[in-house]
């Protein structure tokens, strides 16, 4: 586990070991910690624009003693086969999940409009991490399907009253051709959430219609 201040210091340290400036998107627990939804996470999830940027980051963390790990303990078979799976690096308790441009096929928007918060770590080089809006965080949590992802969604929903299920379901439907399983995963997650929070039936109906049930 890594807490907020340790994460900030670690990223600042990594910026000192990077050869060039990098701009990437923080998702998952990292993004939640930046947004103060929680104060500790097991893994630092980052999405890079391209492989070159990821390689610069990997070079830096390798210098700090991080070693590549297998995905098998963390992700299920379906996600391990996915071409857009991450590379995983760890050192003691901390782990990096490093994606390129998409998260299991879900394309990450790198434009300024999609950014809610921007965190700059200035060392010898500059590491910029953008945090997407909460709806994207929830959708990504719903499709990564790891043990703690559901709890994280619950944490966000407890802290925010104004989550737009309209936006979440529309975005998921936009991916139904390229990621046919996205609607099933989201519906499963929404069913579980429905027991704890009010989610309007129209959003379920929208998913069923899109799936053709």
């Amino acid at each position: 586990m890594i807490n907020t201040s340790e994460q900030e210091e670690l990223l600042k340290l990594i910026a000192n070991f990077m050869k060039t400036d990098i701009e990437a998107v923080a998702i998952g627990g990292t993004a939640m910690m930046f947004s103060n939804y929680k104060n500790a996470t097991k893994d630092i999830d980052i999405v890079f624009k391209d492989v070159e940027d990821r390689d610069v980051f990997i070079d830096a963390i390798k210098q700090l003693g991080y070693i590549e790990k297998s995905l098998s303990d963390i992700y299920d078979e379906k996600r391990q086969q996915n071409p857009a799976k991450p590379l995983m690096f760890s050192r003691s308790d901390e782990r990096f999940d490093l994606f390129v441009s998409s998260v299991f096929g879900f394309k990450i928007n790198f434009s300024q409009d999609a950014v809610l918060q921007k965190y700059d770590f200035l060392g010898k080089s500059r590491l910029t991490l953008n945090v997407p809006v909460k709806e994207v965080l929830i959708l990504l949590k719903a499709i990564t399907g790891r043990e703690t992802d559901f709890e994280d969604i619950v944490t966000i929903l407890k802290a925010e009253n104004n989550v737009s299920w309209d936006s979440i379901t529309k975005q998921a439907i936009g991916y139904k051709e390229s990621l046919p399983w996205i609607l099933i995963d989201l519906e499963e997650c929404m069913q579980k959430l429905g027991k704890l929070f009010d989610i309007d039936d129209t959003y379920f109906k929208r998913l069923y219609d899109a799936h053709g049930d």
């Binding site: 990223l11 600042k12 910026a15 918060q117 700059d120 200035l122």
Partner: peptide, 23 residues
Amino acid sequence: PEFEHYIYGRYTVEDAIIDGLKI
């Protein structure tokens, strides 16, 4: 602000100009 911007490290006027050029 179009986004919330947080800095860790030394952020100068020169860095701000570069960010302005990007926006």
